[in-house]
Design a binder for these strands. Structure first.
Lengths: 258, 258
DNA sequence: TGTGTTCCGATAGAATGTGATCGGAATTGT
DNA sequence: ACAATTCCGATCACATTCTATCGGAACACA
């Protein structure tokens, strides 16, 4: 049996994680044929890179989609039905001449793809990947602004530069993708820096619209972005829990089911 | 066993990589009938060219091959000889722990590919493509900062956001790619906004180093970035016109020919 | 023939990866 | 609340790999 390269081992850990959601140090050590100490070290480096979250006894996937893995596109395709419907509904609100903002996420990514044809559109985003969608379309009447910053694993530019950039800008409409929403904790994300940047997005927009599929309900990320009631609208799918719909209708001006 | 040309060896390494996803130095040395040292050298040159990513013990395919447009890479490959030499010389000036800045351009792109392995490096750039090079390498000790702004056709983020971002930053070393240089007009670029951003780069750096191959001499772009004498050094190729060398030596503290 | 130049192999020392051990922290069971 | 168990991080020893040089062989060019 030929030895395995450290990077290959990292890859297999991530693969196992995507498949099982949870991995244990002991089982990984057995599967990979290395000591537990080595597995711990691997988990540490992967966690430092933000590719997973360590828990006692093993590791789990971060709720954030890892954009540079094949999983990004794949995950997009997986739930494509609902996400595409949400993106389509959201795109229907965008009129030529508007300025909009999109944060990083798979739903906003899908939305971006539907906006490339709209004329005289100004787009502000902190996702290089979303910016790339517009660059590739090369619509000369569109104005694409990328905020600066440091990139997180989920392809979002965050940090002081993104905040100061967003502080200088004002857009008509914000579409904000989130990682979780509950009645108590509002809209949340697992990354503190992303939460901060998303708050700056909210400040920079005249109107805020959350886009989130039904799986986000009941999920709480590490960090609150904003309470439920302090945004203008939410666009979700029709599979959203009926009780959640009631709660959301009471807090929000507008709940739209795609 | 018949000897093999270096380029043929490179080809076989890439073939093996495509087939196996991973190769290790020891097995390659055995297969190709050369020493491990030679394999390492091959992997280094291929990694500098962006054809693969080195990992401990071997190499793997780049995770994000889609990010490289054929046109861009092709242009890079065209003049690869001199540009690679310049990039290599420039990379020799970068030490672990430094903070450096790179503007957008093919020469700085080549330089970026050579810096992905340097530890504790902070990199400021206005080129999403250069940022992507570092993202792909995923060196956890490196800190990659992307300025914001609007993207030009040459993949540079420019405009007010880039200026305000660079106004907040200070780096040890700037490597600035330019489009033209002459005795009268200094360093120039065809794009006014890029010129402005490049000036901000210069202000943000303790030391400024221009990187430009010999074809840039005698070319004047629309807009001056800075006169010849107001930067610290120029790195160019040995094919640079001798008369140009004289003029440059008089204006600059340091002229380095790769 | 002499002189570079380029490519390759060898070596040494530095850096990194790995496994074992142990004290202490976290978790679980009662 | 307490003990048993499991898990974690720090540290050491050892193995592997990497980088930086050095010197030699092959080749080109006067």
């Amino acid at each position: 049996m030929t030895e395995m390269l450290a990077s290959a081992r990292h890859q297999r850990i991530l693969d196992a994680l995507r498949e099982r959601e949870q991995v244990r140090v002991t089982s990984l050590a057995a599967e990979l044929g290395v000591s537990e100490m080595t597995v711990r070290r691997d988990l540490n480096t992967l966690a430092a890179r933000g590719a997973l979250v360590k828990v006692h006894g093993g590791a789990t996937l971060d709720a954030a989609p890892t954009s540079n893995e094949p999983g990004f596109v794949h995950k997009l395709a997986l739930e494509s039905g609902e996400k595409q419907a949400i993106a389509q509904t959201a795109a229907g609100l965008v009129r030529p001449g508007m300025s909009i903002a999109l944060n990083s996420g798979t739903t906003t990514y899908a939305l971006a793809a539907q906006c490339t044809g709209i004329k005289d559109l100004t787009v502000v985003t902190n996702s290089p990947r979303i910016a790339e969608v517009f660059y590739a379309a090369a619509n000369p009447s569109q104005n694409i602004i990328l905020t600066g910053g440091i990139r997180t694993i989920s392809d979002a530019l965050v940090g002081p530069l993104s905040l100061s950039a967003l502080g200088q800008l004002h857009v008509d409409l914000l579409f904000l993708g989130v990682h979780g929403m509950t009645a108590e904790d509002g809209f949340t994300t697992p990354n503190m820096l992303e939460a901060q940047t998303n708050q700056a997005f909210i400040k920079a927009a005249a109107q805020q619209i959350i886009v989130a599929d039904h799986t986000k309900w009941g999920v709480t990320g590490l960090c609150q972005i904003v309470p439920l009631g302090q945004v203008d609208a939410l666009i979700s799918g029709h599979r959203l829990d009926p009780e959640a719909q009631n709660i959301l209708r009471q807090s929000l001006d507008s709940l739209i089911l795609a």
